[in-house]
């Protein structure tokens, strides 16, 4: 490796590392506690500087994973159901969000039409209300539609809240893609739609990936709506399951910690897979290709 002209000096490099290491410790310290709690077989660690598991065990994980519920048709494996609920709802939210937001954002980025500015402002206005504000109306609406305690109902609510943000994200991404590219494609023989499909969409892929990931994550982590709209344990999503371990009467920190780690696994896997897109998406527009 040759030394780049703007490479930092040794001192700067050490300084940067010290700051970064401190930041990582700061961020990871609570996670260390969660790990210690989750793996401790006997008395949980308390008030130690460096939390470490005592009598390491996987028992808590086993307990979290093996929950069941008896139904008239036999017993169902609850944890698996709930994990599937979470994944299905989150993936569907991301998919619905992208399917709605991509064409909308593209139209906003490229076309002039009547009511465009008003529409954008209305969309922006929806972002100003916290979800809790619409909790009761959503409950009543879904009740009328017979969508309480259903994945579909949850997806509809999540998509409705994630779409406006996705539209703003993607609109900026499409605006950053030069119109020349589409025009070049049309001269090359593409219809407007083909140009969109074969040139604009691939060029916007990093931004779309980031937006989808964001929608997925917010659905996957969402608690308040899910807790309000779902009442049957077999319809729960994982955040509600987690919360149930630390309810008022019987707090099980060990199960909560084990559950928290399990819940994080899919997200970590997703981040790992998507990280190339993520970096590209977060820096897109900063540098001209």
């Amino acid at each position: 490796m040759t030394r780049e002209p703007d490479q930092p000096s040794l001192l700067e490099s050490i300084g940067a590392h010290v700051v970064l290491i401190l930041a990582v410790i700061f961020a990871l310290y609570p996670v260390l506690w969660v790990i210690a709690l989750a793996f401790s077989g006997s008395r949980p660690p308390v008030a130690e500087m460096v939390p470490l598991p005592h009598d390491a065990t996987l028992a808590h994980f086993q307990e979290v994973v093996s929950t069941t519920k008896a139904t008239p048709d036999g017993s169902i494996w609850l944890f698996a159901r709930q994990l599937v609920n979470s994944l299905v709802v989150s993936i569907a939210t991301a998919a619905v969000g992208i399917i709605i937001a991509v064409p909308t954002a593209y139209a906003l980025a490229r076309f002039k039409f009547l009511g465009k500015e008003r529409g954008v402002r209305a969309l922006l206005a929806t972002q100003m209300f916290p979800t809790v504000a619409s909790l009761i109306p959503l409950y009543l609406l879904l009740d009328r539609l017979h969508l309480l305690d259903s994945r579909t109902g949850l997806v509809v609510c999540y998509a409705a809240t994630s779409v406006p943000f996705a539209i703003f994200q993607l609109r900026a991404a499409f605006e950053a893609i030069p119109v020349d590219l589409e025009e070049a494609a049309m001269v090359d023989g593409a219809t407007r739609f083909e140009a969109f499909l074969r040139v604009v969409l691939p060029a916007a892929r990093p931004a779309i990936a980031v937006t989808a990931l964001f929608a997925f994550m917010s659905a996957y982590n969402e608690f308040i709506l899910a807790a309000t709209l779902l009442s049957k344990a077999e319809m729960f999503t994982l955040p509600i399951v987690l919360q149930s371990y630390i309810n008022q009467y019987d707090t099980r920190n060990d199960l909560f910690a084990a559950g928290a780690i399990l819940v994080s696994v899919p997200v970590m896997a997703l981040f790992y897979v998507a990280q190339r897109h993520l970096v590209a998406g977060l820096t897109a527009g900063g540098v001209k290709g």
Binding site: P178, D180, L181, E183, A184, A185, V187, V199, P202, A203, R205, G289
Partner: peptide, 11 residues
Amino acid sequence: MVFQSYALYPH
């Protein structure tokens, strides 16, 4: 057509 910006498909 050759564009001023070249308009090469980046992907």
